[in-house]
């Protein structure tokens, strides 16, 4: 129970121009016990983060408002749609990474389109993850490790709360396992164990297939082929 309390401290800022998708991501995040704020544009996101846009014309100067040292509300992660009118998710990512006060906030990009060049561009610019839409509960399990990282970074700078944070740190591995378990739908076809072990071995041979890579590879096939076996085969998807 103490764990749930610690988790609820993580605050996620979700950015999407579609109301349906905002509702969805909000529910997904809340179900995963995060605190959530949603906004409908990149500029509102920057506003919420306390970054003024006044000097947008001159991107070489740090685009930071005078007394910005910490935004009033701590944000542990920003998750943003890629395709938005005006400021895209990519633009927002760049603004955050260019800002000395915000660059430690992890950014995750969501997109309905599986375009490898787009995914690479976002990852190169410092995005932690790239989620294909619609985002699933199982995707959200990948967020937690990134938030832990920022908490720890903050800890190095700060002096107080050391004890609390180190407790959180110790809990991490165990918590992670639990999260992974939670991410698997309870009612799945009981796949033969041996088969899934074989799959695991095969997968560990080609170590490189982390999530990012997989997304890109999928992108090589036409979009209509993107029928991931979401539930039926999930036991073998490690």
């Amino acid at each position: 129970m103490g764990m749930a309390a610690a988790e609820s401290q993580f605050h996620v800022l979700a950015v999407d121009d579609s109301l349906i998708d905002r509702k969805l991501i909000e529910r997904l995040l809340k179900t995963s016990s995060y605190q959530v704020t949603t906004v409908d544009s990149g500029s509102k996101a920057l506003e919420f983060l306390g970054l003024s846009e006044t000097d947008e014309s001159n991107p070489s100067t740090p685009s930071v408002s005078p007394n910005n040292h910490h935004q009033e509300v701590e944000v542990n992660l920003v998750i943003t749609d890629y395709c938005m009118p005006g400021m895209t998710g990519y633009d927002l990512l760049k603004k955050i990474k260019e800002s000395s006060s915000l660059r430690n906030i992890p950014v995750v990009i969501m997109s309905s389109e599986n375009v490898p060049s787009r995914i690479n561009r976002c990852l190169e610019e410092g995005a932690e993850e790239f989620f294909l839409k619609p985002v699933r509960l199982s995707d959200l399990n990948k967020l937690k490790p990134h938030m832990k990282k920022t908490k720890l970074k903050d800890q190095k700078q700060g002096t107080s709360e050391k004890l609390e944070n180190s407790e959180v740190q110790q809990l991490q591995p165990q918590q992670q396992i639990q999260n992974d378990l939670q991410g698997v739908p309870k009612s799945q076809d009981p796949q033969p164990e041996s088969e899934s072990h074989l799959e695991q071995q095969q997968q560990s041979l080609q170590q490189a297939n982390n999530n990012k890579r997989k997304t890109i590879e999928q992108g090589l096939s036409p979009e209509t082929d993107r029928t991931r076996p979401r539930y039926s085969g999930i036991a073998t998807v490690v």
Binding site: L19, I20, K23, R230, Y231
Partner: peptide
């Protein structure tokens, strides 16, 4: 399967979640 995700996100605290989101879909 995405519709099932919506159903899974509905609970006693949000008993009308599916209807709400689907109504938004109709309007949109």
């Amino acid at each position: 399967a995405q519709f099932m995700q919506l159903q899974q996100l509905q609970d006693e605290n949000n008993p009308d979640f599916v209807v709400e989101v689907v109504s938004l879909f109709f309007q949109d």
